[in-house]
Amino acid sequence: MSPTVPLSELAHARSGDKGNHANIGVIACDQTAFEHLGRALTAERVAEYFAALAPSAVVRYELPGIRAYNFVLFDVLGGGASRSLRIDSQGKTLAVTLLKLPIPAP
């Protein structure tokens, strides 16, 4: 097993909702971390981590100007702000949850 670090060592993040979808913006601390996360923090990895929320798709977009990735998690909010039965109906805590994800150390 190669050593891992929590994502929070390499990046910070913010999450929110759009209807029944959520997005998590992950901002790398520096260029090295941005490139490392480009390989280690794939859409597949994020989809697997949040598998319990049964996303219909996870798409990763890049914002190279601020060294960030934007993950859009489709259909993960249990109906969205209007009809979700969850306390976090707007996915506000998805970001801090993702920051605990173990990432192979760079």
Binding site: K18, N23, G25, Y61, L63, I66, A68
Partner: peptide, 9 residues
């Protein structure tokens, strides 16, 4: 930067 990525697609 955190607010730039807030609730975007």
């Amino acid at each position: 930067s955190e607010q730039l990525v807030y609730e975007i697609g």
